[in-house]
């Protein structure tokens, strides 16, 4: 008998896909990291945005080398990602994101929680580099453990209360890439933030 999919997983996939996020299923964090490298490989070189003559914030025009940022990873995991990235010719960074406000190719983050009904990833981003990673990359890859999926917004309340009560925190719900419809109500993806959003759903 075929295994039936967890309804939370199906709902999350359905809703995240509806907001033009791409959802893939992976075994663990290592596979999620490999997926991020794959995304980086497939995408066009980042279009680095001109950010001013006097501000040293990266170059302008098409990037010469692809760049991937993953500030949230443990030392060990980062070392692995960096090694594998280098082999493919990518620069992999885990800090100093302010120097790259003009844009990077891929940002890799880990979500604390997923909300199935809205297709949302919940990220805690008090660290400034982690925060910037999710904003200045062209493709954002988020690793989300299936075990952290909840059904709806109200099911996330306890968790949010806990982290917000701890002290200082920057928490983001992210559902799909940046979008606008401000010109004649025509939907355009990627006006300020990422142009692509990927969610790697992890078994563990």
């Amino acid at each position: 008998m075929a295994e039936t999919e967890d309804p939370l997983v199906s709902l999350f996939k359905k809703r995240a896909t509806a907001v033009t996020a791409k959802v893939v299923e992976v075994k663990d964090l290592r596979e999620a990291m490999s997926y991020a490298l794959e995304v980086c490989e497939k995408k066009d070189f980042c279009e680095q945005v001109y950010v001013g003559d006097n501000v040293k914030l990266g170059s302008y025009g098409k990037a010469a080398q692809k760049m991937l940022a993953a500030p949230g990873l443990s030392k060990q995991n980062f070392a692995m990602l960096e090694k594998n990235g280098k082999e493919k010719g990518f620069t992999v960074i885990r800090g100093g994101l302010r120097a790259h406000v003009s844009g990077i190719d891929v940002g890799f983050s880990t979500a604390e929680m997923g909300i199935a009904s809205t297709g949302t990833c919940v990220l805690t981003l008090n660290n400034e580099d982690m925060r910037l990673t999710t904003m200045i990359c062209e493709a954002h890859v988020v690793a989300l453990p299936k075990s952290r999926l909840v059904n709806d917004l109200e099911d996330a309340e306890n968790f949010l209360n806990k982290i917000m009560n701890k002290g200082v925190m920057y928490t983001s719900f992210i559902s799909g890439p940046s979008r606008t419809a401000d010109i004649e109500r025509v939907l355009v993806i990627g006006v300020h933030g990422p142009l692509e959003m990927h969610v790697a759903l992890m078994e563990s």
Binding site: V19, E128, L160, G167, T171, F173, S175, S178, R179
Partner: peptide, 18 residues
């Protein structure tokens, strides 16, 4: 839309390198 692309919760003065 079911939800906006982003909902941000800013709790206190966060890290800012500048």
């Amino acid at each position: 839309q079911i939800i906006t692309s982003y909902v941000n919760w800013i709790t206190g003065a966060n890290e800012c390198a500048l």
